[in-house]
Computed example of a mutant assay.
Amino acid sequence: MSTFLQLQVDTLAQAIPTADTANAALTNEVSVLEFIFKGGLFLIPIALLLFYTLYIIFERYIYIHKAAKIDNHLMSDVRNHLNNANIDMAVMAAERSGTAQGNILKEGVLTIGRHINEIESNMERAANIEIGYMERRLGQLGLIAGIAPTLGFIGTISGVIKIFYSISVTEDISIGNISGGLYEKMISSGAGLIVGIIAYAAYHLFNGKIDGFSLSIQKQVLEFVNIIQRPNGHKAK
Results as ranks from 00 to 15, higher is better:
Gly192Lys: 01
Pro45Trp: 00
Glu130Met: 11
Tyr55Glu: 10
Thr156Cys: 09
Ser174Gly: 13
Phe42Gln: 03
Gln218Asn: 14
Ile227Gly: 04
Ala24Arg: 13
Gly208Leu: 12
Leu143Ser: 14
Leu205Gln: 10
Gln8Thr: 05
Ile131Asp: 07
Ile163Lys: 08
Thr99Leu: 02
Thr170Phe: 07
Ile129Lys: 14
Ala15Asn: 09
Thr53Gln: 01
Gly113Gln: 09
Leu205His: 11
Pro45Met: 08
Phe58Gly: 07
Ile157Ser: 07
Thr111His: 15
Asn207Pro: 03
Ile62Trp: 09
Leu222Trp: 03
Tyr165Arg: 11
Ser216His: 05
Ile16Gln: 10
Lys185Met: 02
Ser216Phe: 03
Ala126Pro: 03
Leu48Thr: 00
Asn122Val: 07
Ile36Leu: 15
Gly208Phe: 07
Phe42Gly: 03
Ile194Met: 09
Asn28Gly: 10
Asn28Arg: 14
Val9His: 05
Phe35Gln: 14
Ile197Ala: 08
Leu54Asp: 01
Leu141Tyr: 06
Met186Gln: 06
Ala24Pro: 02
Gly132Pro: 06
Leu33Pro: 02
Val160Cys: 07
Ile56Glu: 00
Tyr63His: 08
Ile36Ser: 06
Phe224Gln: 05
Ser31Tyr: 08
Ala100Ser: 15
Gln6Lys: 10
Leu49Gly: 00
Ile157Cys: 09
Ser174Asn: 13
Phe37His: 12
Leu26Asn: 14
Met134Gly: 07
Glu118Met: 06
Phe153Thr: 11
Asn117Lys: 05
Glu171Lys: 14
Gln218Phe: 00
Ser216Arg: 14
Arg230Lys: 12
Arg114His: 10
Ile70Met: 13
Ile56Pro: 05
Gln220Cys: 07
Leu82Val: 05
Ile147Cys: 03
Arg79Ser: 10
Ser166Ala: 14
Ser168Phe: 07
His204Cys: 03
Gly102Cys: 05
Ile104Gln: 02
Asn23Lys: 11
Ala201Pro: 02
Gln6Val: 04
